[in-house]
């Protein structure tokens, strides 16, 4: 595991890239990690925002929950490691 991780942000930082999904506040949606079962709001996941795209990871097991890529042609969002997303 990483000892220091200055690149890590809170899932809250992904609000702009996920805003097009249309829910009033995407970062308040609840995600379940398919790997370890941890369930929490998007705002509290670990986020890595890069110029290639953003990656949200489970704070408990590091699994990739969400990937968002903004390209000239549009935005792509994948949820490879989430078993579900819910609005509470």
């Amino acid at each position: 595991m990483a000892t220091h991780d200055p690149a890590a942000l809170d899932g809250n930082a992904l609000a702009g890239q996920l805003a097009f999904l249309g829910s009033p506040d995407v970062t308040s949606l609840v995600l379940r990690c398919a790997t370890c079962g941890r369930t929490d709001v998007v705002a509290r996941v670990r986020a890595y925002v890069t110029a290639m795209g953003s990656v949200a990871r489970c704070v408990a097991c590091d699994a990739v929950l969400v990937v968002a890529v903004e390209q000239p042609g549009g935005t792509l969002v994948a949820m490879p490691g989430a078993s579900w997303v819910a609005r509470s």
């Binding site: 930082a13 609000a15 805003a19 009033p24 506040d25 970062t27 308040s28 709001v41 705002a43």
Partner: peptide, 9 residues
């Protein structure tokens, strides 16, 4: 500018 963003913090 894009926003306002984030309803958690």
């Amino acid at each position: 500018v894009r926003g306002p963003l984030g309803g958690y913090f």
